[in-house]
Design a protein around this nucleic acid. Structure first.
Lengths: 349, 349
DNA sequence: AGACAAAACCGAAACGTTTCGGTTTATAAA
DNA sequence: TTTATAAACCGAAACGTTTCGGTTTTGTCT
């Protein structure tokens, strides 16, 4: 069907190698360049990336493994990452593993078979899901939101603990001392970190540290709503609450409205993620924000540098010790968007 | 690095063709089967899908082009589609074109270069974004949410007009006659359909059909909030509102709370999509739901049948006229989840 | 014009599969 | 045991690129 390099070599009377050279940015005499370009246009030639991939052993494809695609936090990261990668000529294969460890393993295996050049992972499982295969093959991995000690790769983290701590500190500074938290699932890394941040802030400020002040949602809207209700019913003296992800924030806000709780008069609230929602909320919600675009950018670029840099190792002799993989861990700061959902109980601020 | 078929041929003393046969489910003598399997395990052989793709001219990869990844409706469809496709051995390349026609064109071009076997598209643009190339190459396309007359492909549609009409009819039956609508962007196909449904129902029921009763959001949270406020301020006698997508539903609900409007006492509301949100809402929202899983399933399976069926054309001689492409258009019914957000003003119901 | 270096060009071999015809081996019937 | 038939097996030639080593052309300086 489609024309091949051979066809345009024949058409132009030039050699195969010359066409290849032209296609890869090599030098070609002016008049030949014109001939080639004409032939390409006439025959509708398009380079076969599959054949190229076989020969060069690089598919220009990178795999992304995520826990949930229909979670706005992950979706935002992927949107951005895909954009950047594509602008560098990389295709993206996305695998949603539905927060299931076994599916994660399968996805990694699947992508390995497809010979992707590298991996961006937001790990669900706690153990190596076949990442070692990539490492062994010299294919770079970038992990987001979690570090695994036994996997040697770059990591893009967010200071979850600090973010939670900061949020609680703000509540304390505003004069609150009985502060509730809607926490995420126990087996999710970021959820644990955020809880740790809450606990640290509570401890450091000698605020109330009731068991009952922490309710566990499961990172879903319904979970957040249920947790909010539980918190409200069990803690009549609670004056503020920190909610540790977006979905639960939506749920909690719904429940707050349902219960007729006035924010911030009766209850101060700090939520998580999604500025759009916070702004559209009434009153405007104060929230912790994650730098999703920055995370994606950092991840994509780290990967690309590793990938393209490897070529340079062959051209110029590189200062790196051969085989030595130097990895980088970036921890990004979270942001805070001030709304009107926190009541100031004192005048310290 | 990795072992090839040649290696395991050598190791087992068998021929290349036999190994290939084994790998593709052909028959092999028992003792040879064992030898092969041992060799595969020992040498950690994994078939190179890229080479296979070159030879068979099928990449077992399908491209998905969507307007926005961080839109829960699209995200749900993709999650499901990716799942099904992967379970059939197909990888998925996703391109988010950010509702931009030009980017859509680029994405289609990009995927064509990557030699994907087929395409699932939720078109943004109104014109052919390079789909004809796929058609000409005999590669199937499935379109979601929109039909394009000049592109010959399968379509999975949702009865948007009927959904909107039904929603408004419900409001009418409950005794409402001044019914507002928060509509989507004028240049989005589904938005127009939903508006048409609203208008039809209004007309058929002799309900009020003020210009001012239709406010245009732009399918975003903030847009929905603004539209809600506008509607409320301009229509003091409006008793019900129909909101035509999820993001705007969230926005409108926020604004409703902000304005202190009591639902359903002062205003009846019917929203769109996302059952989770509707359930977590207070009061529980009545919403139109779209069968996202079904859409995805229909799209993925239609594509797979086209893809695998093509093989059969070569094996068995098929009844289809050669080159004749028979396409199918499926229109799926929407659902409705009853909440407590519609007030009954009469006793007809 | 002749000599020389640099730039441009070339064909063939490889990448790891599938597939085509043809050959060997096993199985069953005579 | 022979013979017929089917099932397994085999090597070589593709698929469309890149790359290697070597050859030709071009341009520059005497």
């Amino acid at each position: 069907m489609g024309a091949t390099m051979k066809d345009i070599a024949k058409r132009t009377g030039l050699g195969l190698a010359t066409i290849s050279s032209y296609l890869n940015g090599g030098n070609v005499r002016e008049k030949n360049r014109i001939k080639i370009e004409e032939a390409i246009k006439e025959l509708h030639f398009e380079v076969n990336e599959v054949a190229r991939g076989l020969k060069t052993n690089r598919t220009k494809t990178i795999g992304i493994v995520i826990p949930e695609l229909n979670n706005i936090f992950f979706a935002e990261i992927i949107t951005e990452a895909e954009d950047i990668l594509r602008s560098h000529g990389y295709a993206t294969m996305i695998c949603d593993c539905r927060s299931d460890t076994e599916r994660e393993r399968e996805a990694v295996e699947f992508l390995y078979h497809r010979r992707v050049d590298g991996l961006i992972v937001m790990p669900t499982g706690t153990s190596d899901s076949g990442f070692h295969k990539f490492i062994r093959a010299g294919k770079p991995i970038v992990m987001i939101d979690r570090k695994m000690k036994d996997v040697c790769c770059d990591c893009i983290l967010v200071d979850n603990e600090g973010a939670a701590e900061d949020a609680v500190n703000r509540l304390v500074r505003a004069g609150h001392s009985r502060i509730g938290m809607i926490a995420g699932p126990e087996d999710v890394y970021t959820a644990k970190e955020r809880q740790r941040g809450y606990e640290k802030a509570v401890r450091d400020n000698n605020a109330a540290s009731d068991e009952g002040l922490v309710a566990r949602g499961n990172y879903t809207i319904a979970g957040g709503a249920a947790a909010m209700r539980q918190l409200w019913e069990n803690n009549p003296d609670m004056t503020a609450v920190f909610i540790s992800n977006y979905e639960m924030t939506v749920g909690a806000m719904m429940e707050i409205n349902d219960l007729g709780i006035r924010v911030p008069d009766e209850l101060s609230v700090i939520g998580f993620d999604n500025v759009d929602f916070a702004k559209a909320s009434a009153p405007r919600l104060s929230i912790v924000t994650q730098p999703t675009a920055k995370i994606a950018q950092e991840a994509a670029e780290t990967l690309i540098i590793k990938l393209e840099g490897k070529d340079r190792t062959m051209d110029v002799d590189h200062q790196d010790v051969d085989g030595e993989r130097t990895t980088v861990t970036v921890t990004l700061k979270t942001g805070f968007v001030e709304g009107r959902s926190v009541r100031v109980l004192n005048n310290k601020v």
